[in-house]
Design a protein around this nucleic acid. Structure first.
Lengths: 147, 147
DNA sequence: TTCATTTCCGACTAAATACGTAGGAATTGA
DNA sequence: TCAATTCCTACGTATTTAGTCGGAAATGAA
C-alpha cells in the first residue's frame, strides 16, 4: 500500500520544477541537490515524464528541465501514473473485460470484494487527481519553505 | 500502490469465515478450495491473524478456524494491518518523532508534501476502517453469491 | 487404541520488484 | 573548443513477494 521512491521522488522533482516555473530550464543536478536524491536515478524518472509530455527538456550547457504545462494543470495523479502505472489496489480492477485484458474478473458483477477495492481506488484517485502542483506551491508559500 | 496477495487472500478468507460465522470451526482446506488459494499459503496468513486475535483455531479432526468476534466488529483495515503492516503510502508518516522511530521527518511541520500523503492515507483508512465483514456479508446476500 | 484429520511450525526457494550505478554518446551555449 | 548537460542502454544487487516442503503435535471418531 506504499508509493515507491519513483513516485515519491518524481513528485518531489515536479514540485521543485513548479516552484521555479517560468525561470527557464533547471538542471537536474540542481533539482537533485535541492531534493537530496541521486541525479542518475532522477534522470530515469525525468525520461519517463518527458515521454509522457509532463516536462520539456533542453540539452547542452544552460539546459535542463521545466514543466510542459502550468502547475495548476498538472495533478499528482498524472505524475504517479506515469511513474508507477495505474492507481489501483488490485490489477483486476483495471482489467478490461471486453478485450479480456488480464485473466481476472471474468464475472465482476458477481465479485463481492470488487466493490470494496473499487471504493478504495476511488478514494485514492479522488485525492491524487484533485491535487495539483499549484496547490502544493501555495502550501509551500504558506509554510514559508519555498526555495 | 497495490494490496499484496497477503492482504487480498486474507480478506477473502476472513470474508469466507464471516459467511459461515456461528457454524463452528471451518477447516482451512474448505476455505482454500472455496476461495481458490493455496492452503499452505493461507496457513501462514491464518497464523498471523490468530496471533493478532482475529480468529480462533481448533486443532485435530473436525478442527478449523472461526472468527474470534462477530463480523460487525471486524474491519477490513484491521485485517490489512495484521497482514501487511501500517496502512500508509509512506513510512515516514507513521514514524514517531518523539521516540525518533525511523530516520524520517525530523521537521514534519516544514514538509510540504507531508500533507498530501497524509490526506491520501486518511482517505484510504477512511474506507478500510469503516467497512466491516458484516458489510461484505450483506453485499454477498444482495448479490446472491453467498456460498 | 488406532487412525485420519487438522492445526502448527520452521526452513527453504524461485521470481519479481525496487532502487539504484556505470559509462559513454549526443547536443548546446559561451 | 570545451564544459555543461541531456540522453540512452545496460548492469547489479538487495529486498520483497509468493509461495513450497516436510513433519510434529493435537484431536475426535471408529
Amino acid at each position: 500500500m506504499r508509493v515507491s521512491t519513483r513516485g515519491e521522488y518524481g513528485v518531489r522533482a515536479m514540485f521543485d520544477l513548479a516552484l521555479h516555473f517560468g525561470d527557464g530550464p533547471i538542471a537536474l543536478k540542481t533539482v537533485a541537490e535541492r531534493q537530496v536524491v541521486s541525479e542518475h536515478y532522477l534522470e530515469q524518472l525525468m525520461a519517463a515524464l518527458r515521454k509522457a509530455g509532463l516536462v520539456k527538456s533542453k540539452r547542452g550547457a544552460q539546459g535542463g528541465y521545466e514543466l510542459a504545462n502550468s502547475p495548476a494543470n498538472v495533478s499528482i495523479g498524472e505524475i504517479i501514473r506515469v511513474l508507477e502505472g495505474p492507481i489501483t489496489p488490485l490489477d483486476c480492477l483495471d482489467a478490461d473485460v471486453e478485450t479480456g485484458t488480464g485473466p481476472y474478473c471474468r464475472a465482476p458483477e458477481r465479485c463481492v470484494l470488487r466493490n470494496l477495492w473499487k471504493e478504495l481506488q476511488d478514494s485514492m484517485t479522488q485525492v491524487l487527481d484533485n491535487t495539483t502542483l499549484e496547490d502544493l506551491r501555495q502550501d509551500a508559500y504558506r509554510l514559508e519553505v519555498a526555495e
